[in-house]
């Protein structure tokens, strides 16, 4: 694929993702805004995929240290974000 074609395609993907995001998020009630935030926050830890890639080409040089920090921070983001979201969602109960 030509570089122009690639970028065009990627911008389509980007635009559609934003549209889907707006559509999905608008439907979340204020009741669940905190879990929404912590849950979507955990999702942003997907940058972990990039961090693993960064680690592949690094030895224990400066890049390796940066990659190690990237994996660590990304994992804190993922595990912590899901942890608090799970704790909060368990609490929302209906009247018996």
């Amino acid at each position: 694929m030509s570089p122009e074609g690639y970028w065009l395609l990627v911008f389509y993907v980007f635009m559609l993702a934003v549209a889907v995001g707006v559509e999905l998020i608008s439907k979340v009630p204020p009741l669940l805004h905190t879990p929404l935030m912590s849950g979507s926050n955990a999702i942003s830890g997907i940058t972990l995929v990039g961090a693993i890639g960064a680690a592949v080409f690094s030895g224990w040089d400066a890049n390796g240290v940066l990659a190690f920090l990237a994996v660590t921070f990304g994992t804190i983001n993922v595990v912590g974000g899901y942890g608090v979201t799970h704790r909060m969602l368990q609490m929302f109960k209906k009247q018996k």
């Binding site: 990627v10 993907v13 980007f14 993702a17 934003v18 889907v20 995001g21 707006v22 999905l24 998020i25 929404l36 935030m37 979507s40 926050n41 999702i43 942003s44 997907i46 940058t47 995929v49 990039g50």
Partner: peptide, 13 residues
């Protein structure tokens, strides 16, 4: 792509 898509979802949120 998966980073682009998910980043956009979180950004929109």
């Amino acid at each position: 792509n998966v980073l682009i898509i998910l980043g956009s979802l979180v950004g929109a949120s």
